[in-house]
Simulated assay, not measured.
Amino acid sequence: MVEMNQPLDSEINLKMQNIMMVLRKCCNHPYLIEYPLDPATQQFKVDEDLVKNSGKFLLLDRMLPELKKRGHKVLVFSQMTKMLDILMDYCYLRDFQFSRLDGTMSYAEREENMHNFNTDPEIFIFLLSTRAGGLGINLTAADTVIIYDSDWNPQSDIQAQDRCHRIGQTKPVVVYRFVTANTIDQKIVERAAAKRKLEKLVIHKNQFKGGRSGVSKSCLDPKELMELLQSRDYDREVKGSREKVISDKDLELLLDRSELLDQMEKSAPLKQKKGVFKVLEAVEEASLECAL
């Protein structure tokens, strides 16, 4: 009688998990499923394999050193606190100083970490849980946002981005969204884009902005409807490559902010009002999103 191979405990646990969550973990980092141990110390193994085993980490490892060299500060958002743990290990590996905020932290810890990030130029990265504490978080010291994994609800990601789009932000903010092609990641982003289209249909042009006097529209005309349905908001954020690591030329294009800086210079100048608020006047809505 032939003995059947007994499955490993990790295999049994994997089968009992939600398949969609397992797929999301595979896209984010395989260490979310099982973190390897160092045979000598029996501690988590933190080495170059941490970077090489994840496509998102390969791109992150190309972007972050260059962003630091250019003097930027970065917010990195993830849905999973375990993913933040792995990102912390990466920061230790690359000797990046960082702060962290998630739902398990006390109010005092949050305030201290936010203060340190906003005041200490040496703290380069702030690791955040996407849904942790949306109100009262002001991180205007950052000018770069990396959404490591997207939420099914697009408003959650938008609220996360707004944490550095507060009053007092004087630099253009760039938002990068990491999406693994042809995976559950892409499905989530497509679903979020569909929800955004629905919002545009419900709150359409001039609905809540007064519009022209004596003019009211109860519905969209066919031309506006087709423009909304054919809009591709999230496609502009996707940067794909057949190579394992992005080339130097593509990296330069990805990090280039000259267009945003030009838009700020062409728009109305910032005027100081009694040293409290900086008001940007006579700016079109499209430019406002880039400038604030």
Rank of each mutant, 00 (worst) to 15 (best):
228 L>V: 13
47 D>L: 06
197 K>H: 07
162 D>T: 00
33 I>Q: 09
106 S>Y: 09
260 L>D: 01
89 D>P: 04
104 T>A: 12
218 S>R: 11
31 Y>E: 01
45 K>A: 14
139 L>Y: 06
89 D>E: 13
67 L>T: 00
276 V>C: 14
171 K>F: 01
35 Y>E: 03
151 D>N: 07
132 A>E: 12
262 D>G: 06
280 L>D: 03
175 V>D: 02
4 M>T: 09
98 F>T: 02
183 T>F: 02
278 K>E: 06
84 L>H: 08
189 V>M: 15
241 S>P: 01
236 R>L: 12
85 D>F: 14
237 E>Y: 10
226 M>T: 14
41 T>L: 12
291 A>C: 11
58 L>H: 05
115 H>Y: 07
85 D>G: 09
42 Q>F: 07
125 I>N: 03
254 L>S: 04
253 L>N: 13
48 E>D: 12
153 N>M: 09
287 S>V: 08
63 M>Q: 11
10 S>I: 15
23 L>G: 07
86 I>W: 01
164 C>A: 01
209 K>I: 15
265 E>T: 08
151 D>V: 00
282 A>G: 02
35 Y>D: 06
86 I>N: 01
264 M>E: 01
19 I>V: 10
170 T>I: 03
67 L>G: 01
148 Y>G: 02
245 V>P: 07
101 L>C: 12
271 K>V: 15
18 N>R: 08
155 Q>T: 10
252 E>W: 05
240 G>E: 07
271 K>G: 00
167 I>H: 04
270 L>I: 15
160 A>M: 01
126 F>R: 05
289 E>K: 08
187 K>S: 02
262 D>K: 12
149 D>L: 11
99 S>Q: 11
213 S>M: 15
146 I>N: 00
241 S>C: 11
153 N>L: 03
216 S>P: 04
223 K>F: 15
218 S>W: 03
77 F>R: 04
51 V>C: 03
203 I>E: 10
158 I>A: 05
9 D>Y: 09
72 H>C: 02
218 S>K: 13
273 K>N: 06
212 R>A: 06
78 S>Q: 00
224 E>P: 13
283 V>S: 12
29 H>I: 04
198 L>A: 09
156 S>P: 04
171 K>E: 00
214 G>N: 13
205 K>P: 10
114 M>N: 09
283 V>N: 07
91 C>W: 03
59 L>S: 02
151 D>W: 01
256 D>V: 05
258 S>D: 06
209 K>Y: 13
256 D>W: 03
223 K>V: 15
203 I>S: 07
54 S>F: 10
120 D>E: 07
282 A>I: 00
195 K>A: 08
265 E>H: 04
12 I>M: 07
25 K>A: 13
237 E>A: 01
280 L>K: 07
167 I>E: 00
132 A>C: 11
262 D>S: 11
173 V>I: 15
204 H>A: 13
199 E>Q: 14
180 T>A: 13
